[in-house]
């Protein structure tokens, strides 16, 4: 009985699709802002006249490792939650 889902039931499917795509875009953008700030701190210490190739490579690696970290955590969290339910219970409490 998800209130937002039931609320969406009477909505035109095309509007619904539009909203879903926009929400995804927004999540993408939010993560880009977050990673830019984080990777900027890790890779671009002193801003020079141009972004040198080392900083560029560092930024790309930083994004890849950040996504790796995020995927790794989610995967491990799903495995942990299967074995002991204590954490998920306290979360949905």
């Amino acid at each position: 009985m998800d209130p937002s889902a039931s609320g969406m039931g009477s909505v035109d499917p095309r509007l619904r699709h539009f909203i879903e795509v926009e929400t995804q875009k927004q999540r993408f953008q939010q993560l880009v802002h977050q990673m830019t700030e984080l990777c900027w701190e890790k890779c671009v210490d002193k801003p020079g006249p141009k972004l040198d190739s080392r900083a560029e490579a560092c930024l790309v690696n930083c994004v890849e490792r950040f996504i790796d970290t995020s995927r790794f955590i989610v995967k491990r969290l799903e495995q942990t939650q299967k074995s002991k339910a204590g954490f998920s219970e306290s979360l949905s409490d």
């Binding site: 977050q34 984080l38 690696n61 490792r65 790796d68």
Partner: peptide, 28 residues
Amino acid sequence: AVANAQELLQRMTDKCFRKCIGKPGGSL
């Protein structure tokens, strides 16, 4: 509950990435 789990996930990812990844390399 979903929003809460996402918030935990996001903060944890940020904290642990900063703590464990010094200079990001070619793989984890």
